[in-house]
């Protein structure tokens, strides 16, 4: 095995994961299977361990920078973890075909709205509009509103969390989609916080990064107990992931919001395409390129 190649793969996954608030499994699993010929179950199990590495390496930087909203992460993770367990239970019986199509449409919509709202979010930051919303009762009860310092705009961004019941419900569905369809949670958690709950994109990314580690540790522990994690393969991958995530977390706050949202929109386009490809493969048997089916 080429240790350097695996490590480079990890650097890329960790960097993208930290920059976008994702786990990085979308990079690790296809490359482990396609390039190194690792068995799919082993690849998924090993990557789940490395998702924890991207999460804690990225989250530690974001927590230090004050970008992560820890209370909000704990609050939303209660339903995300419950949703993931429900999804895993339903995975045995639920027909997934239409779910892939529905999720593809949702991701396409979220992608477009991320790109469209990029400039508007910068204006909201400059005018302090994130603090102008009224907190709902749950947000007020648990003190979920917070602030962070935006290095690119050089302003302290205060925000008030809104629509928490809807956020909890959608987080549950995101967890369920994660358990049912095997997609990472970050791709849904970030837009939920940003577009539903009035959390700025950078705080959403920092909070999602913290949440992912907690969610992934549950599934990775099960894989580990069943002996599916290849710890020798995980070593260079995790080393690369930690390096990449640390680098990504260092620069994320320096990037202008509109560019970050455009990048995130691009990632969502890929996920939307991947879900559509799975739907097409399951219904008509045609395999589209660039997606692990």
């Amino acid at each position: 095995m080429n240790l350097l190649l695996v490590m480079m793969m990890g650097v890329m996954a960790g960097f993208i994961g930290a920059l976008m608030g994702l786990g990085g499994g979308v990079v690790m699993v296809p490359t482990l299977t396609a390039i190194l010929g690792v068995d799919i179950k082993e690849a998924v199990a090993t990557s789940s361990l490395c998702v924890i590495a991207t999460s804690i390496a990225g989250a530690s930087r974001y927590v230090k920078q004050g970008i992560t909203n820890i209370k909000l992460a704990l609050f939303l993770n209660t339903t995300t973890v419950a949703g993931a367990v429900t999804g895993a239970l339903l995975a045995v019986v639920a027909p997934r075909t239409l779910l892939y199509l529905a999720l593809s449409a949702v991701l396409a919509y979220l992608s477009a709205s991320q790109v469209i709202t990029g400039k508007r979010e910068e204006e909201k930051i400059e005018k302090g509009e994130f603090a102008g919303y009224e907190e709902d009762k749950l947000a007020k009860l648990f003190g979920l509103s917070d602030s962070y310092y935006d290095t690119a705009s050089q302003v302290e961004v205060r925000y008030r969390v809104t629509r928490t019941p809807l956020g909890l419900a959608v987080s549950y569905l995101a967890g369920m989609a994660s358990g049912l369809l095997g997609i990472g949670g970050g791709v849904l958690k970030v837009p939920i916080m940003n577009q539903v709950m009035n959390v700025p994109i950078k705080a959403s990314i920092g909070t999602s990064k913290f949440m992912i580690g907690v969610t992934a540790s549950a599934s990775a522990t099960v894989y580990f107990m069943r002996g599916l994690v290849n710890t020798f393969l995980a070593a260079p991958l995790a080393l690369g992931v930690i390096l990449g995530a640390t680098l990504g977390a260092q620069i994320m706050n320096r990037i202008r919001v509109r560019y970050l949202k455009t990048l995130f929109g691009g990632v969502l386009v890929y996920f939307s395409y991947a879900m559509l490809a799975k739907f097409i493969y399951l219904t008509v048997g045609v395999a589209l390129p660039g997606v692990r089916l």
């Binding site: 361990l49 924890i52 590495a53 999460s55 804690i56 989250a59 820890i70 704990l74 913290f210 580690g213 907690v214 992934a216 540790s217 990775a220 522990t221 580990f224 994690v229 710890t231 020798f232 995980a234 070593a235 995790a238």
Partner: peptide
């Protein structure tokens, strides 16, 4: 020295839960 890899994996697995317990 495979025990080092196992110990590293266990540390990764335990860290997020340790963070929640710390919180």
């Amino acid at each position: 020295f495979p025990v080092l890899f196992t110990a590293a994996a266990l540390t990764l697995l335990a860290t997020p839960t340790a963070a929640v317990i710390t919180a």
